[in-house]
Amino acid sequence: MRRQAGSYLVAAVSKLLATLACGALFVMAVLTFIDVIGRYGFNNSIFGASELVELLMVAVVFAGFAFVTATDQHICVTFFDHLLTERAPALMRWSRFLFSLVVYALLLYILWDMALDALANARTTIVLALPIWLFPGIAAALSSLGFILFLLSYPLREDDPHG
């Protein structure tokens, strides 16, 4: 029962993250396309297009990362890795999970700290005067969702992470 509720939440949050990341990438492609067409066709470029691209990149990268951590599987890259996983699959699985969890938490702390710091000193980007806190803020919010997803979904996975 609990497991089902967990799966449901994981699915919903994953879908939200995927939608955000895909939407941002789509807008990025169309934006740069229109910007160039505008510049040559109508002698008019989109003001601050590069700053918009930067903001969209944050959404693509962090929503994508949050999505991947919940769904993607670890790729085995070394021989030792292989050996250890065969000898002690549960140990390897859980040590990998705990290690990733700690690093993820650390990353979250760093991003939130940056966002709050930027919020406090009210700086803006040079061209569009977008508030600087938006960048780490979006990254922190998306990563928080990813963290929750990671926490819920990893123990749910019953298959061997090596697939």
């Binding site: 510049r39 002698n43 008019n44 470029s45 003001f47 590069s50 040079i126 061209v127």
Partner: peptide, 28 residues
């Protein structure tokens, strides 16, 4: 004209002439 301008106040001044301004880091 299309003008590249150093960012900040200068870019605003040039934009007010009616020029199409591109602004950003000097590497760009």
């Amino acid at each position: 004209r299309k003008i590249w301008s150093v960012p900040g106040v200068t870019a605003n001044v040039i934009a007010e002439t009616g020029s199409s301004v591109v602004s950003g880091p000097a590497v760009q």
